[in-house]
Design a protein around this nucleic acid. Structure first.
Length: 195
DNA sequence: TTTAAGATGCCC
DNA sequence: GGCATCTTAAAC
């Protein structure tokens, strides 16, 4: 498996969110390789998107990386969890694509250890906070680039039938709550639960 | 300076 | 339904 070309990310944010599905996230660790197919994403389009951290071009230490080139890693803390995004859009336009779920591929035993013995089956990676724990993606990767080892996205993807829906877990955001900016692979058991 | 609200997930 | 506990904004 080879890393993706940085130019891959130079497409519209919605297009990127859809195209990322089927690509593989690979994390190469000294102890072994952890990987999984992306099967669920959400687009966040900063300036005009009330649900985005970068709404109205809000620029803080947390959102800073979204103003940089597409393809960077945007990690942030949500309560006790780490969530991971792919920065999208041109330089200066703070868009991102949230990785919401993956289908484990390599290193499933290690992912099980990372998640804990009580976690079963699809609960391993069927949520944005769950997959980062399974793949051992921490805040240390903030500002990393998805085309670089040891954490990268594959250049090849397996095709799949894709569905759309409103985004998960956003409220009090007016019209933004109904935008169909969530993409997921049809009939995949690792798709996260709608809240 | 303090408080409330999340792009969540696990336990009761 | 509660709670853990990090960042940010808005209330004091």
């Amino acid at each position: 498996m080879q890393p993706i070309e940085p130019s891959f990310f130079n497409i519209s944010t919605l297009e990127l969110a859809e195209k990322l599905i089927g690509h593989v996230i690979i994390h190469e660790l000294p102890s072994g390789i952890l990987s999984g197919r992306i099967i669920e994403t959400e687009a966040y389009q900063g300036p005009e998107d009330r649900a985005a951290h970068s709404f109205n071009n809000r620029r803080t230490p947390r959102t800073e990386i979204m103003f940089h080139k597409a393809g960077h890693v945007y990690t942030y803390q949500m309560h006790t969890h780490t969530l991971v995004n792919v920065v999208a859009g041109p330089v200066g336009v703070p868009h991102a694509v949230l990785i919401r779920a993956i289908e484990p591929q390599t290193g499933i035993e290690q992912m099980q250890k990372n998640r804990g013995p009580m976690i079963t089956k699809h609960n391993l990676t069927n949520g944005p906070g769950k997959l980062t724990q399974a793949l051992a993606i921490s805040m240390d990767y903030y500002g990393h680039h998805w085309s670089q080892r040891p954490l990268y996205i594959s250049n090849k993807a397996s095709t799949a039938e894709i569905e759309r829906s409103p985004r998960v877990g956003i409220r009090n955001t007016g019209d933004a709550a109904s935008y169909l900016w969530r993409f997921f692979e049809k009939n995949n058991p690792y798709v996260s639960k709608f809240r």
